[in-house]
Design a protein around this nucleic acid. Structure first.
Length: 185
DNA sequence: CTATAGATAATCT
DNA sequence: GATTATCTATAGG
């Protein structure tokens, strides 16, 4: 079957996160198909929106289809797409994508790294796309997938709360996903 | 290959 | 002052 032609950003965050796999994300012509996402909802202790509206997460409570960009650990700009039923404060974190458009630009921004490590991780994606405060609140541009992709759900990574929720979605066939899922045997 | 710690700045208590 | 939706470098097998 052909891939979906529309993406309902007003759906529940986990549904949007799963549906977004395979869609091509472009920032100023640079980007590629999304292969790894994570969902964050307001009723989710791990979400930035959980404590309520603050200056940083204000965009999450705005209309869907906008970028929510924040600085992580003082060095990494992480890119999210605001989604959710209404303005409830949910978003999808872009954890990895396949470098297809503007590879040269991404390499220059990240400094000659192997293609495989260009965009395999939230901080890397942010740096490769040239994300920053100026992108926060901007309109997201997504192009439909060329073909179907397998999608699996796993637990999220790098969080300390609500670790059990299987809201990380990825394409297991793509070599560009971040692989740090092995913690237990 | 795995494991551990350091970097580094905004946000929150 | 503590915490964080991370990455990289370094040490060890």
């Amino acid at each position: 079957m052909g891939a979906a032609l529309t993406l309902d950003l007003t759906a529940d965050a986990p549904d949007v996160a799963r549906a977004m796999i395979g869609w091509t994300l472009l920032v100023d012509g640079v980007g590629g198909p999304v292969v790894e996402t994570e969902a964050y909802r307001q009723d989710d202790p791990a979400s930035h929106a959980y404590p309520g509206r603050t200056p940083r997460n204000a965009v999450m409570f705005g209309p869907p289809g906008r970028f929510y960009v924040y600085l992580s650990y003082g060095i990494h700009w992480c890119v999210n797409v605001v989604c959710g039923p209404e303005e409830v404060g949910s978003a999808v974190l872009i954890r990895a994508l396949e470098p297809v458009h503007g590879i040269q630009t991404m390499r220059e921004r990240r400094g000659r790294e192997p293609l495989r490590e260009l965009t395999s991780g939230p901080g890397r994606v942010g740096q490769a796309l040239g994300a920053g405060p100026w992108l926060n609140g901007g309109v997201v541009h997504l192009a439909p997938p060329d073909r179907d992709r397998e999608v699996v759900a796993t637990v999220r990574i790098g969080i300390t709360k609500a670790v059990d929720r299987p809201w990380r979605f990825l394409d297991p066939a793509s070599p560009y996903v971040s692989r740090r899922a092995r913690t237990a045997a």
